[in-house]
Each structure stands twice: as structure tokens, then as C-alpha cells.
């Protein structure tokens, strides 16, 4: 019988993987929408690719947060209070983004559309960037004292290294979003712009991932095990494969490849973290781990039953949504609200 604490570490990793895979292209689409075209009908065509699903995708993040709270309350407490101002920025971004999706099409005016388009772009770019910052911070470690309390400020979160991490996820999600658009849109004119944007963001993601992995290894900031290196190398290879596929208009393969790359990068992150969830750079013994930060065995057992019953059901009906809306979006499709 597997240890509940290990199982919940895996479940949290699964939830974050699902979140980055799904919200990754949502954020990407949001970032790309105003950059790809100025024509209103094309912008609403782009938004129509994620309109039925973005809300369900965002729940992956909320569930990941809730699962952290339930299974590792100390991690939830320390992480959310230490990333206080960053999370505030992210919340404002997500509020504006969510409101924009609903309000944008309620009024036919150029200014109205422009304002909400900016909100969608900003609201997608900020979380895409901040998640990368957070992941690098978590990996490198934060000033956490022996009673699990964060001793730094907002600016301790923004190191040059973590900013590179943020730019990496920003590029990666944009690339993922471009692949998703190539897969979902039926619009020849936009393909050129999508491909160009996709390949540029690929280049950013590719270079930044290499830098992010090489700097810490050469400087001794982090040490990776062989298995983690393999996972990261595979992720980078998939990223490269995806770019080649996008260039040759194999949209399906390109999208599968970025999906695989995101899944592997997240898996590599959690592999490198295990058994820790937050690293203290003041003293390794003060790190939050799956044992010192966990809930009681009773709570974990209840939550295990619930999660193992419910997650497959969620996957089935979310899968059904994607099946229902599997067709490419045409430019003249009348989107009824």
C-alpha cells in the first residue's frame, strides 16, 4: 500500500500538470488574440476556440489550490502568504480576464472591444509569467524559517533567475496557445501569423529552458538526478519536434508535442522537488516536505477516496466537452449566447 503522503504529492503534481496543460493554451490564446489580428471577426473567432472551456480549465488551478490546502495545509499557508503580492497581481489579472470573456461581446463598440481585449491579453500574460516565477522560486528555495514562515519580501521573489523562469513559461504557453489555435481555427489567412508567433515563442521557450537548466547546474545552485535530466531533455526534444511540426503544418502533432513537453517539464519539476514541496534556502532542514507539512492520515484517507472517485468522472465529462466542441471554428460561425 502506497503511503498517503506520496500519493498526495503525486495527485498534486497531476493537478498542476492538468492545469498547465489546459490553462497553458488558454493563456496562450489570450496573449495571442490581440497580437495576431486587428479584425473584430477574427478576434472573436480566436476567442471562440476557448470560450466553452476556459472556465472549466481554470478550475484545475482552484482544485490544485484546494488539494494543497486539504493535503498539505502548511504548504498552502506558507506558499500563499509568501507569494502574497504576486498572488494579488495574479488575482487581479484573472478577475479582469474572466470578466472580459463574459462582457466583451455584450456591447458592439470599438472602444469597448479594445479595452476588454487588453484585459484578456494582460490577464493571460500576467499569470503565465507569474507561474514561471513561482516555480523557479520554489525550486531554488525561499527564505523560510524554522516555523515555516516566509522571511522575505515581494522583491525576494523576483530574482533575475526567477524572471527568466517567468519569461520561459510566458513563451511556452504562448507557443502552446499558437499550436492550439492552429489546430482549432479554420482560417487560412491567420495561419501565417500564427506560425510566425508560434515559432518566435518557441525560440524564446527553447533558449530560456536551456539557460534555466544550465545556469543552476554550472553554478551548483541545483543538482539534478539522472532521471530528472532525462525528463528535461525529453521535454526539450518534444519542444523542438513541435516547432518542426508547426513549420510543416502538422498541427495535431505539434499540439501533442507541446502538451507532452509541458507535462514532462511539470513532471520534472515535481521529481526534482520530491519529497519537498517548498525549499528553505536558509536551512535545508526547514523545508516543507510531504511529511512535516501534511494533514493527518485520517483526512488524507478521506480525501484519497474522494479524489480517486471524482477525478476520473471529471476527466470524462471534460473530455466530452472537448468532443462536443471538437470542430474547427469557422470565421462566420454564429456564436449564440
Amino acid at each position: 500500500m502506497m503511503d498517503y503522503n506520496v500519493l498526495w504529492f503525486i495527485l498534486i503534481a497531476v493537478l498542476f500538470t492538468g492545469f498547465f496543460f489546459l490553462e497553458g493554451f488558454d493563456y496562450g490564446v489570450g496573449i495571442l488574440m490581440p497580437l495576431l489580428t486587428k479584425r473584430e471577426e477574427e478576434r472573436s473567432q480566436i476567442l471562440a476556440t476557448i470560450a466553452p472551456v476556459w472556465d472549466g480549465n481554470e478550475v484545475w488551478m482552484i482544485t490544485a489550490g484546494g488539494a494543497l490546502f486539504a493535503a498539505f495545509p502548511h504548504v498552502y499557508a506558507t506558499m500563499f502568504s509568501s507569494f502574497y503580492m504576486a498572488l494579488f497581481l495574479m488575482l487581479i489579472a484573472l478577475i479582469l480576464r474572466g470578466a472580459a470573456f463574459e462582457l466583451r461581446h455584450r456591447h458592439d463598440s470599438l472602444v469597448w472591444h479594445q479595452v476588454w481585449d487588453k484585459a484578456i491579453c494582460f490577464g493571460s500574460a500576467v499569470p503565465a509569467f507569474l507561474w514561471g516565477v513561482a516555480m523557479t522560486d520554489l525550486m531554488v528555495g525561499l527564505p523560510i524559517d524554522q516555523s515555516m514562515i516566509y522571511q522575505g519580501t515581494f522583491f525576494d521573489l523576483l530574482t533575475p533567475y526567477s524572471i527568466l523562469g517567468g519569461l520561459m513559461t510566458l513563451c511556452l504557453f504562448t507557443f502552446h496557445g499558437a499550436n492550439f489555435l492552429a489546430l482549432k481555427l479554420d482560417n487560412e489567412q491567420l495561419y501565417v501569423a500564427i506560425r510566425r508567433a508560434g515559432l518566435r515563442s518557441f525560440l524564446g521557450a527553447f533558449i530560456l529552458t536551456l539557460i534555466l537548466l544550465i545556469i543552476p547546474i554550472t553554478k551548483g545552485l541545483l543538482s539534478f538526478q539522472a532521471s530528472e535530466i532525462v525528463v528535461f531533455v525529453l521535454a526539450i526534444a518534444l519542444l523542438l519536434a513541435s516547432a518542426i511540426d508547426l513549420k510543416h503544418l502538422h498541427e495535431k502533432r505539434a499540439f501533442i508535442a507541446t502538451s507532452g513537453s509541458i507535462i514532462l517539464l511539470t513532471a520534472g519539476f515535481f521529481l526534482a522537488m520530491f519529497p519537498r514541496l517548498m525549499v528553505s534556502n536558509l536551512n535545508p532542514d526547514w523545508s516543507l516536505t510531504i511529511t512535516n507539512a501534511a494533514s493527518s492520515e485520517y483526512t488524507l484517507s478521506i480525501m484519497t477516496v474522494a479524489a480517486l472517485c471524482l477525478v476520473p468522472v471529471v476527466l470524462i465529462y471534460q473530455g466530452w466537452t472537448y468532443w462536443t466542441f471538437r470542430h474547427r471554428i469557422k470565421i462566420d460561425t454564429h456564436h449564440e449566447y
Binding site: 489550490g65 494533514s295 493527518s296 480525501m303 474522494a306 471524482l310 471529471v314
Partner: peptide
């Protein structure tokens, strides 16, 4: 957290997924 986190996670798993997916 041991008590409060559980209903919150269950809320996300049973309710948020349901309403957000089917509203779409």
C-alpha cells in the same frame, strides 16, 4: 487545514468542475 481544506477541495472537485464545465 486538516479540517477546513477537505471541504474546500471537495467543493472544487464536486461542484466547481461541474458548474464551470456544464455552463460552457
Amino acid at each position: 487545514g486538516d479540517i477546513f481544506g477537505a471541504p474546500l477541495a471537495l467543493e472544487a472537485l464536486t461542484a466547481f468542475f461541474l458548474e464551470s464545465t456544464f455552463i460552457g
